[in-house]
């Protein structure tokens, strides 16, 4: 009996890949504008978070390995001009499935914020140690 084939990444429901870790979310955001190499991704994440998130080389490639395995990112075979760039650099891009995962995760985060927004004043008052006003 033939074994059923594993669904391709493009056929999978992007909601199965969320929630993403904060680091994975920022790596995917870095790839939205186009393909980038590891150092480019690292710099983009650092700039986007104003230095709050610094990815180490090992952490970044561990993350990329998992994203590659999940079909969320893809390595590109094209290389820029060898005079302008090092051939040892590897470039990554977001796949169609990866873009769908990022969109689903963004929607999920927006829903969380929407749920928390009406209570924001009370949450902040509570975090400052003030007695929250009764509803």
């Amino acid at each position: 009996m033939a074994r059923p084939e594993r669904p391709r990444a493009s056929q999978r429901d992007p909601r199965t890949a969320i929630p993403l870790s904060e680091q994975a979310f920022f790596v995917l955001l870095a790839l939205v504008d186009g393909e980038r190499h590891g150092y480019g991704i690292m710099r983009d994440v650092e700039e986007r978070t104003n230095g709050a998130m610094k990815l180490g080389a090992g952490t970044l490639y561990g993350l990329l390995k998992r994203l590659l395995a999940a079909g969320i990112v893809d390595e590109t075979a094209e290389r820029p001009d060898p005079e302008l760039d090092d051939q040892r650099r590897r470039y990554y891009r977001l796949t169609a499935f990866g873009a769908a995962v990022l969109a689903a995760e963004t929607r999920r985060l927006e829903e969380l914020i929407r749920a928390a927004r009406p209570k924001r004043a009370r949450i902040e008052a509570g975090s400052r140690g003030l007695k929250p006003r009764p509803a």
């Binding site: 150092y39 090992g58 990329l64």
Partner: peptide
């Protein structure tokens, strides 16, 4: 798989 890329990044 990733050793050369990690070294390149460093």
């Amino acid at each position: 798989e990733f050793g050369p890329a990690i070294l390149q990044l460093l």
